[in-house]
Amino acid sequence: MKKNKTFLLSLFSLLFMYGCDLIDYHPYDVDISGETGINAKNMAKIESNCKGKTTIKFAVMGDSQRWYDETEQFVKHINRRNDIDFVIHGGDVSDFGITKEFLWQRDILNGLKFPYVVIIGNHDVLGTGEEVYTKVFGEDNFSFIAGNVKFVCLNTNAIEYDYSHPVPDFDFIENALADRKDEYSKTVFSMHVRPLIHEFNNNVAKVFHRYVKEAPGIQFCTAAHEHHLTAEAIFEDGIMYYGSDSMNHRSYLVFTINPERYEYEVVYF
């Protein structure tokens, strides 16, 4: 009996010492493997690639959560184009805020031949998702300039914060619009949840839109979240809010901004 106990203790010790790779860690850990800080690196590429351009063309998609095959097909489809400057993912790369969801989606999106940025979605805030998003992609509010257009990308997932966090963050918006003001003459706002949708803090929806319409050369706003295509001047003042479809519906939007106007198209794959 003593010999058997000694054998079992030795076996368990070996499994503990050498069997770590067999352990599946908690799905909400924040142990990140692979590339991090993606948005900052890609924003630098976007600004460099678009410097001096008077016409830019970019794609908007979103809600790739759980639709991995379709997202891979999107990457393959858009990579056949040669006219895209960058891609904006409108948020919800994850469904449950699980670490591996972020990493799987990141690895798929890294197959894009164009630089891309990812906006935080309401599902991306679940569990430890916000911490994972911050490590993998970056800050939840960010801005960049492409050609002569300032892109203001925002966390608008107010319902996930129970009003304990400034969502949307008006201080950030003010600072983003003031920063490098002499380098841009047009503005686009991008977010996951648009105003007048339940998950937006609609107590301040009109205030938010006032910031939008007072931005230099406002063009339009983009959003995701609703899982279907939308195009509406929701405040009836001519400023359009365009919503991208979820990836399972196999479509994305392409916008072109030139010196005279902007155009958009829906692309199916």
Rank of each mutant, 00 (worst) to 15 (best):
P115C: 03
V117A: 01
V118Y: 05
I119T: 08
I120W: 10
I120S: 10
G121A: 10
N122L: 01
H123Q: 06
H123P: 11
L126N: 06
L126C: 09
G127F: 11
G129Q: 08
G129R: 06
G129F: 08
E130D: 04
V132N: 09
V132G: 07
V132Q: 08
T134R: 15
K135S: 09
F137A: 03
F137G: 02
G138I: 03
G138R: 12
E139A: 12
E139S: 09
E139F: 00
D140N: 13
F144A: 03
I145W: 11
I145E: 14
I145L: 06
G147V: 06
N148S: 12
N148C: 08
V149G: 09
K150R: 15
K150W: 04
F151K: 03
F151Y: 07
F151L: 00
C153K: 01
C153Y: 13
L154Q: 08
N155D: 15
T156P: 10
N157F: 05
N157E: 13
N157T: 06
Y161G: 07
D162E: 07
D162K: 15
Y163L: 13
Y163R: 14
Y163D: 15
S164F: 11
S164T: 14
P166M: 10
P168W: 04
D169C: 08
D169E: 12
F170Y: 15
D171L: 06
D171Q: 10
D171E: 08
D171P: 01
F172H: 12
F172W: 14
I173V: 02
E174W: 00
E174V: 00
N175T: 04
N175M: 04
L177R: 12
A178Q: 05
R180Y: 04
E183N: 05
E183C: 08
Y184G: 00
Y184C: 01
S185P: 02
S185N: 07
K186R: 14
K186N: 04
T187G: 01
S190N: 03
M191C: 10
M191H: 08
H192M: 11
H192P: 14
H192E: 11
H192K: 09
V193P: 03
P195T: 05
P195C: 10
L196Y: 13
L196T: 11
I197E: 11
F200S: 05
F200V: 02
F200L: 02
N202H: 11
N203K: 15
A205D: 15
V207E: 14
V207T: 15
H209A: 05
H209C: 04
Y211M: 01
K213A: 03
A215K: 11
A215D: 08
A215F: 06
P216Y: 04
P216M: 08
G217N: 07
G217R: 07
Q219A: 08
Q219L: 15
F220E: 02
F220K: 05
T222W: 14
T222D: 14
T222I: 15
A223R: 07
A223K: 05
A223V: 01
A223Q: 15
H225D: 11
E226M: 09
H227D: 14
H227W: 06
H228I: 02
H228L: 07
L229W: 04
L229A: 03
L229Q: 09
T230C: 14
T230Q: 15
A231R: 06
E232T: 10
A233N: 03
I234S: 12
F235T: 07
F235Q: 12
F235W: 07
G238Y: 01
M240I: 15
M240E: 09
Y241P: 05
G243S: 11
G243V: 02
G243R: 02
